[in-house]
Amino acid sequence: MDFVDVEHYDPYNDTWARTCPAVKYVTNFTATACHGKLYVIGSCAVKYNALTLQCYNPVIDGWSIICSPFIPKYLSSPRCVSVEGLIYLIADNTKKVYCYDPLANMWQKVG
């Protein structure tokens, strides 16, 4: 697959429109907004044991792959939420919780 279609919803006009395509196709993914950007965390279609972190920046209408130290391994049914500028990643197949700081580009395990 050469690109991944992405659409956004405009609630004021009740319409959908295409957005710049994502860089990588991912499955088993979760998404959240943080610092005005959209973060998508999911399994790369080629490597099911590795997660990929992608970021959409609406200011430049572009996606980027974020390479970060200690990105967690594959998680079943991941879910994430942004709280006070940090992204928390949770999986239902483990009791592990990870925290990503977009400004520092660092992951850490939450106790």
Rank of each mutant, 00 (worst) to 15 (best):
residue 1 M to S: 11
residue 1 M to Y: 09
residue 2 D to E: 11
residue 7 E to P: 00
residue 7 E to W: 07
residue 8 H to Y: 10
residue 10 D to K: 06
residue 10 D to M: 09
residue 11 P to Q: 10
residue 12 Y to Q: 12
residue 13 N to I: 02
residue 14 D to E: 11
residue 15 T to K: 03
residue 15 T to N: 05
residue 15 T to F: 05
residue 18 R to Y: 08
residue 18 R to N: 09
residue 18 R to D: 10
residue 20 C to A: 10
residue 20 C to K: 07
residue 21 P to Y: 02
residue 22 A to I: 11
residue 23 V to S: 07
residue 25 Y to L: 08
residue 27 T to Y: 10
residue 27 T to D: 07
residue 28 N to E: 11
residue 29 F to C: 14
residue 35 H to A: 13
residue 38 L to T: 07
residue 39 Y to A: 08
residue 39 Y to E: 01
residue 42 G to W: 01
residue 43 S to L: 14
residue 43 S to K: 11
residue 44 C to Y: 15
residue 46 V to Y: 04
residue 50 A to S: 14
residue 55 C to A: 08
residue 57 N to R: 00
residue 57 N to C: 01
residue 63 W to A: 03
residue 64 S to D: 14
residue 65 I to M: 12
residue 68 S to N: 06
residue 74 Y to T: 15
residue 74 Y to S: 15
residue 76 S to T: 12
residue 78 P to G: 05
residue 79 R to A: 12
residue 81 V to I: 10
residue 86 L to N: 09
residue 87 I to Y: 01
residue 88 Y to L: 00
residue 89 L to Q: 08
residue 90 I to L: 10
residue 93 N to F: 13
residue 94 T to A: 06
residue 95 K to F: 12
residue 96 K to T: 04
residue 97 V to R: 06
residue 98 Y to K: 03
residue 98 Y to C: 02
residue 98 Y to W: 12
residue 99 C to T: 02
residue 101 D to Q: 02
residue 102 P to S: 09
residue 102 P to Q: 03
residue 102 P to E: 09
residue 102 P to Y: 02
residue 103 L to E: 08
residue 106 M to N: 11
residue 106 M to E: 15
residue 110 V to D: 10
